[in-house]
């Protein structure tokens, strides 16, 4: 889940439709905000604001993009944008929670020009298992007991399900039985 997401914001001034283009698939998401302009008229005072969702943490921004922690925004001032020219900006963010993350970019310019686009990222968690095994008595005398304590840890960010533990007792030892079993919920269960 801690992998970086890279977003590219593209603001273009020139002939064409007004609106947002659907985000492209893949790790780099493109937000296209296109202002409808005549061929002779540049867009002036162009600014772009990228709004980070709650589950995303700012990492870096290109072209001097300013991050505001309070408003969760990254802002670029592009200035004038000539007809048929585009300003391409990018930022990197780290997802911090699972679920759907909506990144929204808004481009504004003089004379009330405004357009928006968004990219949606579905963030998933991963489960990861670690295991520690220790024996309570070592060495142990013939005829005496020792207990192995086996600790299984979910070190990931996602619930692990349907977990099974298998132990093979060597020929030189005799099974005395599972002496205890404890999980996070303090359940009690025996092996078979």
């Amino acid at each position: 889940m801690a992998r970086l997401e890279k977003f590219e914001v593209c603001a273009a001034a020139g002939p064409g439709h007004y609106g947002a283009q659907a985000p492209l698939p893949g790790p780099a998401r493109n937000l296209h905000a296109q202002d409808h302009q005549s061929r002779q008229c540049p867009a002036s005072n162009v600014s772009i604001i990228h709004l980070l969702p709650e589950g995303s943490k700012f990492h870096t921004a290109s072209n001097g993009g300013r991050h505001d922690l309070t408003t969760r925004t990254v802002t670029w001032f592009v200035g004038d944008l000539a007809p048929a020219r585009a300003a391409r900006l990018s930022l990197e963010a780290v997802p911090t929670s699972v679920g759907e993350q909506r990144h929204r970019a808004t481009a504004t310019a003089a004379r009330g020009l405004k357009t928006e686009a968004e990219a949606v990222t579905h963030v998933e968690g991963l489960s990861a298992l670690l295991m520690d095994v220790v024996d309570t008595d070592d060495p142990v005398e013939i005829g005496a007991d020792t207990t192995y304590e086996i600790r299984v840890i979910n070190s990931g960010s996602k619930m692990e399900t349907n977990l099974e533990l298998v132990c093979t007792v060597p020929d030189k030892m005799e099974l005395r039985g599972p002496s205890a079993w404890r999980a996070a919920a303090s359940a009690s269960r025996a092996g078979r």
Binding site: T146, R151, N154, L165, C167, M173, S179, A183, G191, R192
Partner: peptide, 21 residues
């Protein structure tokens, strides 16, 4: 020896098993 399956193990949680031989 096979322990009964554990239905869920939450993130950062652990389960402790003990086997005496």
């Amino acid at each position: 020896m096979i322990f009964e399956p554990l239905a869920k193990l939450a993130p950062r949680a652990d389960a402790i098993y003990r086997v005496t031989v």
